[in-house]
Design a protein around this nucleic acid. Structure first.
Lengths: 135, 135
DNA sequence: ATAAAAAAGGATATAAACTGTCTTTTTAGG
DNA sequence: CCTAAAAAGACAGTTTATATCCTTTTTTAT
């Protein structure tokens, strides 16, 4: 239960790798994909999503590729995960548009709210800077 | 992401309802299903899983049905959820048999471990007793 | 201008998981 | 023996996940 999908896993690997490269250098998608061992076509879709919300900057044409959209310490793991997986919603009742009417009377509801807050908190507390392995 | 399935939702509804009934009374599955608005055949599968691990006691034949296997204050929400959804595993790397070898060197790994611990903790802190609505 | 490089976008395909239903079997009571 | 009820197993439709492929657009270099 509550499992990150491949897409999420790949997304993290890809952007963490990018965060570990020289920040002013454009990286080829194919290079990133090879480095983190992810199908290039799949990673392309992921980076398109990143690009749309500014998590990465993309450059087309010869010499093109990707750069981090912001310094690594300004990008949280929560942003990365939600970019590709959507919002953290442990149960429908705590979604933005909940599809459960009894939320008010339901005693389980606050539990899911708490789970949601804790997960979001844990992911928001971590930035890409802390995730790049320094050696 | 991280969403409880219908099965999980139904499981909670069903067993919380049972916990709110007189504890020594056997309840018909069909009655429970009707009360909590869940397809009876689906709920049957769920209660079979409950029964196997002793969360509920089942009685076959005429006059049969289900009873809570333990007092409500001795059953946690975590048990109920894991009974039908399997273990709480936000990422494969924190599963019992992880399929990621780099767990040692990976900086993301401790984050998922933390998420796992917090979710489990939040669900374990709540018992069925607290979930039955008293009015 | 043209060709080549690279990302963007769209369509498609396969497999797995989710959400059930149906049928048969087992157990218990009257 | 007959009926009530859960257990067990098979099956089916839908949705989501996991990609891949192809075409288009943008940019750069020749």
């Amino acid at each position: 239960m509550m499992e990150l999908t491949r897409k999420g896993e790949y997304a993290i690997r890809g952007i963490v790798y990018l965060a570990g490269r020289p920040l002013d250098k454009v990286c080829l998608l194919s290079d990133i994909a090879a480095a983190v061992d992810v199908p290039p076509t799949f990673l392309a879709k992921i980076f398109q999503q990143f690009s749309k919300i500014g998590l990465v900057k993309s450059f087309r044409g010869t010499g093109g590729g990707f750069m981090l959209g912001r310094p690594p310490e300004k990008i949280t793991l929560l942003e990365v995960v939600e970019a590709v997986e959507g919002p953290i919603v442990p149960n429908r009742c705590v979604a933005k548009i909940p599809d459960c009417e009894r939320s008010n009377s339901c005693n389980v509801h606050p539990v899911w709210k708490r789970v949601q807050d804790e997960v979001r908190g844990a992911l928001e507390a971590v930035t890409l800077k802390e995730l790049v392995s320094e050696e």
